[in-house]
Design a binder for these strands. Structure first.
Lengths: 132, 132
DNA sequence: TCTCAGTTTAGAATTATTCTAATCTATTGA
DNA sequence: TCAATAGATTAGAATAATTCTAAACTGAGA
């Protein structure tokens, strides 16, 4: 079992107090979808002292190191997903809730090839759910 | 040929000066992808007087009336697409440029069915392009 | 241990978006 | 036709989301 410190060091991120606090919340549990704001609230509730700016910085650092995956769903909400395997999402529009769909279930055919000099880095598929 | 006023009236939106200004920029031309900010700059350049808040309000009104389609790609950029047919997108990450992919080219298989009481309203697929 | 060159943090600044009070407009009825 | 009014629309002000940057911290080398 990797400690948070090891995870950080393996990604050449210094294991600072703030990053460990955040890492504990993110990586000791099942897969999660968080926002900067939701994490910040969780941290405050646990009496930890950290600024919202640091939460943002850390989430972005983690993304760069592929420890998290950024998911843009809603204009006013960026989610960070601890599941970094290629996969897709259901999004519950009214509940603002994100659910993973495993990638190997889904087959996408007919995607045009990328123009010269470009390649497809990532395919994001989000199925929006509403009440029926 | 529908005038902008007709388009607005058909959607039960009052044909105000501001909406007509915006409608002219959006609906008299080929398909476009705009942001509130980019539209606002265009309007200012043409000496029209309008507030950024009104541009936001109008874009959202147009979306509600299905005259535009909102596309969330990038955390810090919401696009509005004048092509309201179901379709998908290429996104040029570095250029922040959005390109339509016609829906009938693409086949998506294996999408789980929506949970009880929910239905899939919309499937958004964005293929991110980077330099290779 | 002491420097010094990055790194990291978080308050301040900026940017994006929404709210709401004031203004405008279409309709109704005299 | 015209005034009153209810609802729609606008845009300045407020809020919320995100980034910037100066100060604090840390680790490697002497």
């Amino acid at each position: 079992m990797n400690s948070i410190k090891d995870i950080l060091r393996n990604s050449s991120l210094r294991p600072t107090k703030q990053r460990i606090m955040i890492g504990k919340l993110l990586f000791n549990d099942v897969d999660k979808h968080v926002t900067a704001e939701s994490l910040y609230r969780e941290l405050k509730a646990s009496e930890q002292k950290i600024s919202l700016a640091t939460v943002y910085n850390t989430l972005h650092d983690f993304c760069e190191k592929k420890l998290l995956k950024k998911v843009n769903v809603d204009a006013e909400k960026v989610y960070f997903d601890t599941n970094t395997n290629p996969h897709h999402h259901f999004y519950y529009d009214s509940e603002k809730l994100l659910i993973d769909i495993s990638k190997d279930k889904i087959k996408i055919q007919g995607l045009p090839k990328a123009p010269k000099g470009k390649k497809i880095k990532d395919v994001e598929l989000i199925a929006h759910l509403t009440d029926n």
